[in-house]
Design a protein around this nucleic acid. Structure first.
Lengths: 346, 346
DNA sequence: CTGTTAGCGCTTTCAC
DNA sequence: GTGAAAGCGCTAACAG
């Protein structure tokens, strides 16, 4: 079987098998309306000729490409990689392929990627982790291709999404710190302008303090970029200006581990003298000492559920609710002192 | 702009603008042979009608889809995620999209994914991290679509690939351990049946011992699966049966960190009483204490270079060499005692 | 600089 | 159960 310069088409198979193109198309697509004998004959010719159906031609004729577009902030970020793995597994299960594009959370880029994906005639679109602005809304509204958001939400609830209750999760994480006795609880968060992750987690932190009648102190707050280094620096700074803090809620595991190391470098024992809790539950959190307590976000599931939801939309299947909130879990390990946690959810 | 039930085509634009389809096609594709006035007129109609070119139709007509297929072991593995990021960045730069599929290193699955990708008429194919068997060779030989391997190699050198010199890298890593005075050096490696990573790194380890006249001891070898837990367990076991080991070369950072923690849990001080060196240089290696010394593999670059190479093949550009070996770096941090390293490369 | 005309390879009625 | 024929939306000669 040499490099086939001359592509062999459905027509070649039809001729060779002495049937019509329609029949070949039927057997290729598993249509039952074909006499077994005919099917067998055609199948033989297909194998013999090494015929490979052209999905592009099929896509043009059927207006279905069995591929979905995925717009992701950054695939090298474990959180999103895990989400993507969930998406791809379910996609494969339903025989879809995914086209992946990184946006780096740049709005212009997100929009243009979506446009490109739409040009490629994807059957559906998954938009991960980004904020939905008016510009996004416009593009989404102008197409009939189904869209599902994952790890982000649509405040107006016009678009379907799959995510967790971030405010509540952050509130619980903070409560853990309070319930074990912490009274000076610092926050190492993301930018408050980040409406997807930064702001809601901040709100949760603040909410927990209020609920427990603890004073909210602006000076106990530091803003990082979710990366290790920023957590380390924030903690170093915090410990210098506010040496009396008892606990830290870092809104990403990387920042939490950075904070943990900074504390250790400054001679603080974790969790004896200082507690640290993170957010995400990436592998790192259980690959450091002490093991990091954190909010376990079901990353894989968010992706899987979002993709599953998308298949329903693509097949016009009924959908109970387009807004699905998955459960997170408070994973208590060794960077905090509390051993059990059973806050009832709202 | 409502959900466009009736898709608007190049023909509609042509009619509305009072020109031919060919002209519209020309302006859409930036063909210079169009009078500026005409171009402007067409562009206006395009905007006004909200026309979006159908890439599938274009693909069928032009026999180019500007998408490449990527077969990857596991996107949730940082090593491959980083590689993929390199691929996607370069792909975007050349206006290609990527279709991503996880194979979990299952050979059957790899082959079938490749078949699917070929059906989708990708312009090129990237095969990551897997072993190239005869079955692979057959599929590759049967198509005229260019293929580039990344983070793996083709022993027969029939296929182009981008990777590093694994044997040499493993040899150097081991040499670091020897040069700082280690004499009982253990290996926590991958399966020897893994011809892509496991075996070559084992060969490097062995080679370094030989070169330095150190005895090779089978009992100093443990096989893991590259994950943290297996490194931890291997080390625990090692320290029990061979308490006199001076150093460990773990062929993945996760295993190395696992080993490091196991050693610490058993009361060994790293690097004072025991040295550990890893392989890969994933973020984890610089987010643990002590910071892990490791072999820095240019993951992003492997992906980027492979994709760049692929664009050359896709455009029939001349290629100096299809086999490119990128440089790794020995990153000395705090889990080993040596402070400088300047082994000359072969 | 612009239009006409074939296809690209397949699906999909509609007949038979 | 099977075939004929009309597109799907676009590109690519080829004319002019």
């Amino acid at each position: 079987m040499a490099k086939q310069k001359e592509t062999i088409t459905i027509y070649d198979v039809a001729r060779e098998a002495g049937v019509s193109m329609a029949t070949v198309s039927r057997v290729v697509n598993g249509n039952p309306n074909v006499k077994p004998a005919t099917r067998k004959k055609v199948l033989n010719v297909i194998r013999q000729l090494g015929y490979r159906p052209n999905a592009v031609a099929r896509g043009l004729a059927s207006k279905k490409t069995t591929t979905v577009g995925v717009v992701i902030p950054d695939i090298s970020n474990h959180f999103y990689a895990e989400l993507t793995r969930g998406i791809e597994d379910i996609a494969a299960m339903y025989h879809y392929n995914i086209i992946l594009s990184n946006s780096d959370l740049k709005k212009e880029k997100e929009i243009s990627l979506i446009e490109t994906l739409l040009e490629k005639q994807v059957d559906g679109l998954l938009f991960l982790g980004g904020e939905v602005t008016e510009a996004h809304r416009e593009v989404f509204a102008a197409t009939s291709v189904p869209i599902v958001l994952a790890a982000t939400r649509d405040e107006k609830k016009e678009l379907p999404y799959v995510t967790i209750d971030q405010i509540q999760a952050a509130k619980e994480a903070t409560s853990v710190l309070i319930h074990e006795g912490g009274r000076r609880i610092a926050l190492i968060g993301g930018p408050l302008t980040d409406s997807v992750n930064g702001y809601p987690r901040y709100l949760g932190y603040k909410g927990a303090l209020e609920e427990n009648d603890l004073p909210f102190d602006d000076e106990l707050i530091r803003i990082g970029d979710y990366r290790y280094r920023s957590g380390y620096e924030a903690m170093t700074d915090l410990l210098k200006s506010k040496p009396d803090i008892t606990s830290v809620f870092a809104t990403s595991d990387e920042m939490a581990v950075g904070a943990l190391h900074a504390a250790q470098d400054m001679g603080r024992k974790v969790p004896e003298e200082l507690s640290v809790i993170g957010f995400e539950n990436i592998p790192l959190s259980s690959q450091v000492r002490p093991l990091l307590s954190t909010v376990a976000v079901p990353m894989y599931d968010i992706g899987a559920v979002a993709m599953r939801l998308l298949t329903k939309y693509m097949n016009d299947e009924p959908v109970e609710s387009g807004q699905v909130i998955l459960q997170y879990r408070i994973e208590l390990r060794n960077s905090t002192r509390l051993r059990e946690w059973e806050e009832e959810r709202l």
